Amino acid sequence: MNEDTTALVGDGLALVDECLDRFFALSAQRAKSYGRAMEGLWEVLRDASSGGKRFRPRMVMLAYSLLGGTDLRAAANVAAAYELLHTALVVHDDVIDRDWSRRGVPNVAGSFRDAATTGGVPLPTAEHRGTSAAVIAGDLALSAASRLVEASGVDGERRSRLLDILDEAIFASAAGEMADVDLAIGVMPSVDDIIAMERAKTAVYSFEAPLQSGAVLADAPEHVVSALGIFGREIGIAYQIVDDLLGVFGNEAVTGKSNSGDLREGKRTILVAHAATTEHWSAIEPFLGKNDLTDDQLAHLRFRLDCSGATLVAIERIRGHVSLAEAALADVPAELAGRLSDLTAELVDRVR
């Protein structure tokens, strides 16, 4: 990516932050007429949306800028919509997973639970307050996402298309979240079941929709929009499989991600789904999902998963989806294709 384009994307991301700052400032002002609890809700929600990598807005701005878009303020509103969508889904996901913290600090639910317990409210009631606040906060962020798309000032067919892409991202994410809940109980899912869930839950709103939104906003040809959707789907699935792999075998100091949490939770990943079909499962199942796993038991699980061929299956799937993603770039202009190809190279490097 040349210096001019790098600067353009950087300027666009700065505008995304401005857009989000303006949105939260206006929302905080509106909240004052509804009392302190509502003001507190917006403060915590703003904290939940800050400090991230702005990955999804970056995908919007990258596609938009490299496809000839020049109205950065319009693009910033659309990109900010995907950041708010991400915030909403993360807040709701924490409720579903019964998590009270994220990255070592209280999340939205945890903040409201802790405030209640500090005030002397019994824990069950405080936890109900926390989860209720998180559901409400996630709903507010979710509804605001479409408002930001409309605030871009784009009208006509492009406006309708952008709203349709966002709506499909929300719809797919809900389907993926529901599948994730169901796959955690009952019969062990297949590897393909896991991949379908991960595509719907994460790949659509993280890669497919932001890239396609940037292309539509730039008025790119339909074959380019379609190709970016395919690239986003395949690279998004690959990213999720990498996360599953690093969630068991990764170096925590490098990834910043626990390599024991998935095993202690008994999370049904592609690794577990494959291992369940092999002779090694009888040595894995008794330990998987135990909260008090020792270091020796964790090492045993990693050894058995590896012996089952789960690691190789995951790596083969990653390579397959990366290959499909790269193939889709044949229909994408060279500069954008080159930048997106860098993403696939970074992905492969993570599992070497």
Rank of each mutant, 00 (worst) to 15 (best):
A169V: 06
S341I: 00
A88G: 03
D349L: 14
D97R: 06
F287R: 10
P57A: 08
A175I: 13
H223S: 06
F287V: 00
L41E: 04
A314P: 07
T277G: 02
G119R: 10
D331N: 14
Y64V: 07
E168C: 05
A209C: 01
E279F: 10
L72G: 11
V248C: 12
L166G: 11
V187K: 12
D97M: 11
I194Q: 12
D47I: 04
H321F: 04
L301C: 08
G10D: 12
I185W: 08
K32I: 03
Y239R: 02
G153L: 11
S190F: 05
T294F: 00
S65I: 10
V60P: 10
G250T: 08
D193N: 13
D71E: 09
G68Q: 08
T278L: 07
V254M: 08
L8D: 09
L13T: 09
R102A: 05
T202D: 03
W100T: 14
G138Q: 11
A7V: 14
I96E: 13
L41S: 03
A63T: 11
S49M: 07
A227M: 04
L20S: 10
D192Q: 13
L26R: 14
L162W: 04
D4G: 09
L217T: 06
Y205M: 09
S143H: 08
F55Q: 09
G320C: 01
G214D: 03
V272M: 11
I315D: 03
S341W: 01
T6S: 13
I237L: 00
V9K: 09
V254I: 14
L142W: 00
D97A: 09
R36C: 05
D342Y: 05
A330S: 14
A137F: 04
R352L: 07
S146W: 07
L123H: 07
A75Q: 05
I315A: 04
C307W: 05
G40R: 15
T6K: 15
D11T: 14
V135F: 01
L84T: 01
L312D: 14
I170L: 12
L288H: 04
K32P: 01
A334L: 12
S282G: 05
A48T: 02
G130F: 00
L301V: 03
D292N: 15
G176K: 08
I235A: 00
A253K: 13
M59A: 12
L343S: 13
H280G: 02
A31F: 06
A126C: 10
Y82S: 05
A276V: 10
P122T: 02
E316D: 14
F207M: 06
D71F: 02
R161D: 12
D93E: 06
D93A: 06
E222S: 09
A276R: 05
K201T: 12
G309C: 07
L228F: 06
E252W: 06
G309P: 08
S160G: 14
A7E: 15
H280W: 11
A134I: 07
R161W: 00
A227N: 03
I165M: 13
T118G: 12
A253R: 13
S101W: 02
L142R: 14
T269L: 05
A325P: 01
M38L: 13
F171M: 13
A299K: 13
E252H: 03
H86P: 04
L62W: 01
R352V: 08
G10V: 01
Q29R: 15
F207Y: 14
L72W: 04
T118D: 15
L84P: 13
H92R: 09
L163M: 11
R113N: 05
R350T: 06
A116I: 04
E335R: 02
